[in-house]
Amino acid sequence: MMPLRPLAVVTPRGEEELLRSLAVEGAVPLGGGSDLIPGLSWELASGDALVSLAGVPALRRTDALADGSVCLGAAVTLAEVARHPLILGAYPALADAARAVGSWELRAQGTIGGNVCLATRCRFRNQPPLWRDALQTCYQSGGDVCHAAPASRTCVAILSGDTVPALAALGAQLEIWGHAARRLPIEDFYSGDGAHHISLAKGELLAAIHLPADPPTAAFRKWRARESIDFPEANAAVSAVWREGAWRAPRVFVSAVGPAPVRVVAAEALLDGADWSEDLLRAAGELARKAVHPYDNGQLNVAGRQIAVRGLVARALGDLQNARRERGL
């Protein structure tokens, strides 16, 4: 293997030490490293000091809070998310999304925080250095061209974390630590520029994810090249609340089709309070297809990914219907 270039690995045990370590120039948060380490070795990521989050107890907790919400520490692994009784019980769509990530070993290592902050991906960039040498340096690597979207002034690399749409559909909030703590809905976390895709200032980190009390019913779907370990070529999650004989307040999110998740407002308007016939679900899927504009920088082709979006959304909505019938509503 290519040895990593010299760097420091810092292993803080408490919150203060963590924030102090992250404030240093060149410091980068290290979750499980399942994306960062390959990224460093292919010179896709940089950092002089990797600050491991695993030793900070506050980041490793899954807590049910008094108000009924659940607080998930950023360093909880995806394997833990997928099997935690609190998650399986109230947020099964999140467990499904966590289980859809990579392989068994990757889920044992990868954290939910790393999944939400995961670097964007692109077929023209996620390649060994020698391969990339043949291409002009693109925006994300500090150049002034995009091979995927030559007319674009910004990088359009793909947000590939599978838990993102599930968390967005559930209405999750992110707790950020840094100079001051702040909280924001997950869908506001992504800038839309693939080269700087998350809004974290220097020294900040994602500390926890808050899942709401009384969550809506939700479902997650993913499309990828091989069913085994591949990154999503498109994924989607939907949620809604069954009240007085109809689905209300639907939320429809599609992701892995660009640098930020896409909320399909038109589909939500169509679905809210309506009779969810098969035709309606298909129409909602079609609205989702029209709302996304993937570029040719995934593994599979653009037309296929668009068609997949239509199917993913329609089927996820069907999953909600099935869940309702199973509960006898």
Partner: peptide, 24 residues
């Protein structure tokens, strides 16, 4: 992290040694 041939156990959990920093 793509091929699994470096799998070993860390405290009983199968992990990929190639993407695990020894210090962690």
């Amino acid at each position: 992290g793509s091929c699994g041939s470096c799998t070993l156990w860390v405290d009983g959990v199968p992990r990929l040694a190639c993407v695990t920093l020894a210090k962690t």
